[in-house]
Amino acid sequence: MEHYNMNLNLKVWRQQNGKSKGEFKMYRVEDISSEMSFLEMFDVLNEKLIQDGEEPVAFDHDCREGICGACSMYINGKPHGPWQANTTCQLHMRAFKDGDTVVVEPWRANAFPVIKDLVVDRTAFDRIIQAGGYISVNTGNAVDGNALPINKDKADASFAAAMCIGCGACVAACKNSSAMLFLSAKVSHLALLPQGEPERHSRVINMLAQMDKEGFGACTNTGACEATCPKEISLTNIAMLNKEYLTASLVADK
Protein backbone atom coordinates (compact mmCIF):
# COMPACT_ATOMS: atom_id res chain seq x y z
CA MET A 1 0.00 0.00 0.00
CA GLU A 2 1.24 3.47 -0.93
CA HIS A 3 2.14 5.61 2.04
CA TYR A 4 1.54 9.34 2.04
CA ASN A 5 1.77 12.29 4.36
CA MET A 6 -1.04 14.71 5.11
CA ASN A 7 -1.88 17.93 6.88
CA LEU A 8 -5.07 18.00 8.90
CA ASN A 9 -7.27 20.44 10.73
CA LEU A 10 -8.51 19.09 14.02
CA LYS A 11 -11.56 20.40 15.81
CA VAL A 12 -11.19 19.03 19.31
CA TRP A 13 -13.43 19.29 22.38
CA ARG A 14 -11.53 20.90 25.28
CA GLN A 15 -12.94 20.96 28.80
CA GLN A 16 -10.82 21.58 31.89
CA ASN A 17 -12.93 19.44 34.23
CA GLY A 18 -16.42 18.16 34.88
CA LYS A 19 -17.61 21.49 36.26
CA SER A 20 -16.21 23.87 33.67
CA LYS A 21 -17.76 24.74 30.34
CA GLY A 22 -16.16 23.14 27.33
CA GLU A 23 -15.54 24.37 23.79
CA PHE A 24 -14.15 23.24 20.46
CA LYS A 25 -10.64 24.34 19.56
CA MET A 26 -8.99 24.18 16.18
CA TYR A 27 -5.53 22.71 15.75
CA ARG A 28 -3.41 21.96 12.74
CA VAL A 29 -1.13 18.95 12.49
CA GLU A 30 1.34 18.55 9.65
CA ASP A 31 3.27 15.75 7.99
CA ILE A 32 1.08 13.03 9.42
CA SER A 33 2.01 9.66 7.96
CA SER A 34 -0.76 7.47 6.62
CA GLU A 35 0.87 4.63 8.60
CA MET A 36 0.19 6.27 11.97
CA SER A 37 -2.64 5.21 14.19
CA PHE A 38 -5.21 7.87 15.07
CA LEU A 39 -3.87 8.04 18.63
CA GLU A 40 -0.31 8.41 17.36
CA MET A 41 -1.55 11.42 15.42
CA PHE A 42 -2.85 12.73 18.76
CA ASP A 43 0.57 12.02 20.27
CA VAL A 44 2.04 14.30 17.60
CA LEU A 45 -0.52 16.99 18.40
CA ASN A 46 0.19 16.70 22.12
CA GLU A 47 3.96 16.90 21.70
CA LYS A 48 3.40 20.09 19.71
CA LEU A 49 1.08 21.52 22.36
CA ILE A 50 3.60 20.75 25.10
CA GLN A 51 6.36 22.48 23.16
CA ASP A 52 4.07 25.47 22.65
CA GLY A 53 3.46 25.63 26.40
CA GLU A 54 -0.16 24.50 26.18
CA GLU A 55 -1.82 21.63 27.98
CA PRO A 56 -2.04 18.48 25.88
CA VAL A 57 -5.43 16.99 25.05
CA ALA A 58 -6.41 14.39 27.65
CA PHE A 59 -7.78 11.16 26.22
CA ASP A 60 -8.18 7.62 27.55
CA HIS A 61 -6.08 4.90 25.97
CA ASP A 62 -4.04 1.95 27.16
CA CYS A 63 -3.49 -1.27 25.23
CA ARG A 64 -3.62 0.34 21.76
CA GLU A 65 -4.48 -3.01 20.26
CA GLY A 66 -8.25 -2.88 20.39
CA ILE A 67 -9.00 -5.01 23.42
CA CYS A 68 -8.86 -3.02 26.68
CA GLY A 69 -11.75 -0.73 25.77
CA ALA A 70 -10.12 2.41 27.18
CA CYS A 71 -10.00 4.53 24.02
CA SER A 72 -13.16 6.42 23.36
CA MET A 73 -13.17 9.20 20.79
CA TYR A 74 -16.21 10.34 18.90
CA ILE A 75 -14.72 11.05 15.48
CA ASN A 76 -16.61 12.89 12.76
CA GLY A 77 -19.90 11.99 14.37
CA LYS A 78 -19.18 8.31 14.93
CA PRO A 79 -17.85 6.54 18.00
CA HIS A 80 -14.36 5.18 17.18
CA GLY A 81 -14.45 6.83 13.75
CA PRO A 82 -15.26 5.74 10.22
CA TRP A 83 -14.08 2.11 10.10
CA GLN A 84 -16.42 -0.77 10.85
CA ALA A 85 -15.81 -3.08 13.81
CA ASN A 86 -12.95 -0.97 15.03
CA THR A 87 -11.64 0.89 18.05
CA THR A 88 -10.12 4.37 17.99
CA CYS A 89 -6.66 2.98 18.67
CA GLN A 90 -6.84 0.69 15.64
CA LEU A 91 -8.08 3.42 13.32
CA HIS A 92 -5.18 4.36 11.07
CA MET A 93 -4.56 7.61 9.29
CA ARG A 94 -4.98 6.16 5.82
CA ALA A 95 -8.67 6.60 6.59
CA PHE A 96 -8.08 10.33 5.99
CA LYS A 97 -6.64 12.47 3.23
CA ASP A 98 -4.64 15.64 3.04
CA GLY A 99 -6.58 18.74 4.02
CA ASP A 100 -9.36 16.94 5.91
CA THR A 101 -10.96 18.51 8.94
CA VAL A 102 -11.55 15.97 11.69
CA VAL A 103 -13.96 16.63 14.55
CA VAL A 104 -13.18 14.84 17.80
CA GLU A 105 -15.50 14.77 20.80
CA PRO A 106 -15.82 12.72 23.99
CA TRP A 107 -18.56 10.13 24.48
CA ARG A 108 -21.69 12.14 25.22
CA ALA A 109 -24.09 10.68 27.79
CA ASN A 110 -25.44 11.81 31.14
CA ALA A 111 -24.20 8.63 32.73
CA PHE A 112 -20.67 9.28 31.41
CA PRO A 113 -19.70 12.67 32.87
CA VAL A 114 -16.65 14.37 31.37
CA ILE A 115 -13.52 14.26 33.53
CA LYS A 116 -11.35 16.29 31.20
CA ASP A 117 -11.29 16.96 27.45
CA LEU A 118 -12.03 13.61 25.83
CA VAL A 119 -11.91 11.56 29.04
CA VAL A 120 -15.22 10.47 30.54
CA ASP A 121 -16.16 8.57 33.69
CA ARG A 122 -17.45 5.11 32.77
CA THR A 123 -17.60 3.65 36.28
CA ALA A 124 -21.36 3.32 35.80
CA PHE A 125 -20.54 0.20 33.77
CA ASP A 126 -18.68 -1.27 36.75
CA ARG A 127 -21.70 -0.60 38.96
CA ILE A 128 -23.98 -2.35 36.48
CA ILE A 129 -21.72 -5.40 36.71
CA GLN A 130 -21.77 -5.11 40.52
CA ALA A 131 -25.56 -5.35 40.38
CA GLY A 132 -25.34 -8.93 39.13
CA GLY A 133 -22.98 -9.38 36.21
CA TYR A 134 -21.24 -12.38 37.71
CA ILE A 135 -21.71 -15.93 38.90
CA SER A 136 -21.63 -16.21 42.68
CA VAL A 137 -18.95 -18.81 43.15
CA ASN A 138 -16.17 -18.45 45.67
CA THR A 139 -12.64 -19.51 44.86
CA GLY A 140 -12.05 -23.18 45.58
CA ASN A 141 -15.62 -24.42 45.16
CA ALA A 142 -15.39 -25.51 41.58
CA VAL A 143 -16.06 -28.98 40.26
CA ASP A 144 -13.95 -30.41 37.45
CA GLY A 145 -14.10 -28.25 34.32
CA ASN A 146 -15.40 -31.14 32.25
CA ALA A 147 -17.98 -32.30 34.80
CA LEU A 148 -20.65 -30.33 32.99
CA PRO A 149 -20.58 -30.54 29.18
CA ILE A 150 -21.83 -27.42 27.44
CA ASN A 151 -23.32 -27.44 23.97
CA LYS A 152 -20.70 -25.97 21.65
CA ASP A 153 -23.10 -23.63 19.87
CA LYS A 154 -24.22 -22.22 23.20
CA ALA A 155 -20.64 -21.86 24.42
CA ASP A 156 -19.74 -20.08 21.18
CA ALA A 157 -22.73 -17.77 21.46
CA SER A 158 -21.83 -17.04 25.07
CA PHE A 159 -18.28 -16.20 23.99
CA ALA A 160 -19.54 -13.92 21.20
CA ALA A 161 -21.41 -11.91 23.83
CA ALA A 162 -18.53 -12.02 26.31
CA MET A 163 -16.26 -10.35 23.73
CA CYS A 164 -17.68 -6.95 24.77
CA ILE A 165 -14.81 -4.66 25.77
CA GLY A 166 -16.93 -2.27 27.83
CA CYS A 167 -15.82 0.79 25.85
CA GLY A 168 -19.21 2.47 25.87
CA ALA A 169 -19.40 3.17 22.13
CA CYS A 170 -22.92 1.69 22.16
CA VAL A 171 -24.02 4.32 24.65
CA ALA A 172 -22.31 7.10 22.71
CA ALA A 173 -23.96 6.01 19.46
CA CYS A 174 -27.45 5.72 20.95
CA LYS A 175 -29.77 8.68 20.65
CA ASN A 176 -31.18 7.72 24.05
CA SER A 177 -27.78 7.00 25.60
CA SER A 178 -29.00 3.56 26.46
CA ALA A 179 -26.61 0.93 27.79
CA MET A 180 -28.78 -1.94 26.60
CA LEU A 181 -26.22 -3.51 24.28
CA PHE A 182 -23.57 -3.54 27.00
CA LEU A 183 -25.98 -4.91 29.56
CA SER A 184 -27.51 -7.48 27.26
CA ALA A 185 -24.09 -8.78 26.26
CA LYS A 186 -23.40 -9.62 29.91
CA VAL A 187 -26.86 -11.07 30.50
CA SER A 188 -26.52 -13.29 27.40
CA HIS A 189 -22.97 -14.32 28.22
CA LEU A 190 -24.07 -15.69 31.59
CA ALA A 191 -27.61 -16.84 30.74
CA LEU A 192 -26.33 -19.06 27.94
CA LEU A 193 -24.19 -21.06 30.34
CA PRO A 194 -25.51 -23.60 32.85
CA GLN A 195 -23.31 -21.99 35.51
CA GLY A 196 -25.33 -18.80 35.13
CA GLU A 197 -28.68 -20.52 35.62
CA PRO A 198 -29.20 -20.15 39.42
CA GLU A 199 -29.04 -16.34 39.34
CA ARG A 200 -30.60 -15.94 35.94
CA HIS A 201 -33.71 -14.09 37.06
CA SER A 202 -32.33 -11.86 39.77
CA ARG A 203 -29.39 -10.92 37.56
CA VAL A 204 -31.38 -9.40 34.73
CA ILE A 205 -33.78 -7.57 37.03
CA ASN A 206 -31.05 -6.08 39.20
CA MET A 207 -28.77 -5.11 36.37
CA LEU A 208 -31.55 -3.40 34.49
CA ALA A 209 -32.59 -1.51 37.62
CA GLN A 210 -29.03 -0.33 38.05
CA MET A 211 -28.86 0.81 34.43
CA ASP A 212 -31.91 2.98 34.99
CA LYS A 213 -30.50 4.30 38.23
CA GLU A 214 -27.29 5.37 36.51
CA GLY A 215 -29.25 7.58 34.13
CA PHE A 216 -28.89 5.63 30.91
CA GLY A 217 -31.84 5.93 28.56
CA ALA A 218 -34.26 3.30 27.35
CA CYS A 219 -33.83 1.17 24.26
CA THR A 220 -35.91 1.95 21.17
CA ASN A 221 -34.37 -0.73 18.93
CA THR A 222 -32.71 1.64 16.51
CA GLY A 223 -29.61 -0.50 16.23
CA ALA A 224 -26.99 2.28 16.16
CA CYS A 225 -25.22 0.42 18.98
CA GLU A 226 -24.75 -2.73 16.96
CA ALA A 227 -23.60 -0.76 13.93
CA THR A 228 -20.90 1.00 15.91
CA CYS A 229 -19.76 -1.80 18.23
CA PRO A 230 -16.05 -2.52 17.71
CA LYS A 231 -16.60 -6.17 18.63
CA GLU A 232 -19.80 -6.56 16.58
CA ILE A 233 -21.93 -7.51 19.58
CA SER A 234 -25.25 -8.50 18.08
CA LEU A 235 -28.62 -6.86 18.60
CA THR A 236 -30.03 -10.33 19.21
CA ASN A 237 -28.54 -10.02 22.69
CA ILE A 238 -31.05 -7.27 23.41
CA ALA A 239 -33.83 -9.55 22.22
CA MET A 240 -32.52 -12.19 24.56
CA LEU A 241 -32.37 -9.69 27.41
CA ASN A 242 -35.99 -8.73 26.82
CA LYS A 243 -36.99 -12.38 26.89
CA GLU A 244 -34.97 -12.95 30.06
CA TYR A 245 -36.52 -9.90 31.69
CA LEU A 246 -40.03 -10.87 30.80
CA THR A 247 -39.56 -14.38 32.16
CA ALA A 248 -37.89 -13.05 35.26
CA SER A 249 -40.68 -10.55 35.92
CA LEU A 250 -43.23 -13.34 35.77
CA VAL A 251 -41.47 -15.90 37.90
CA ALA A 252 -38.84 -14.24 40.06
CA ASP A 253 -39.33 -14.23 43.81
CA LYS A 254 -37.59 -10.91 44.24
Binding site: A142, F159, Q195
Partner: peptide, 17 residues
Amino acid sequence: DQCVAQGVPFAREYGGL
Protein backbone atom coordinates in the same frame (compact mmCIF):
# COMPACT_ATOMS: atom_id res chain seq x y z
CA ASP B 1 -12.16 -25.49 37.10
CA GLN B 2 -12.49 -22.15 38.86
CA CYS B 3 -12.71 -20.21 35.60
CA VAL B 4 -15.31 -22.56 34.13
CA ALA B 5 -17.39 -22.18 37.31
CA GLN B 6 -17.21 -18.39 36.91
CA GLY B 7 -18.59 -18.64 33.39
CA VAL B 8 -15.43 -18.18 31.35
CA PRO B 9 -16.52 -19.37 27.87
CA PHE B 10 -13.52 -21.49 26.91
CA ALA B 11 -13.47 -23.13 23.47
CA ARG B 12 -15.32 -26.46 23.45
CA GLU B 13 -15.61 -29.56 21.30
CA TYR B 14 -18.90 -30.72 19.82
CA GLY B 15 -19.32 -33.17 22.68
CA GLY B 16 -19.45 -30.20 25.03
CA LEU B 17 -16.07 -30.79 26.63
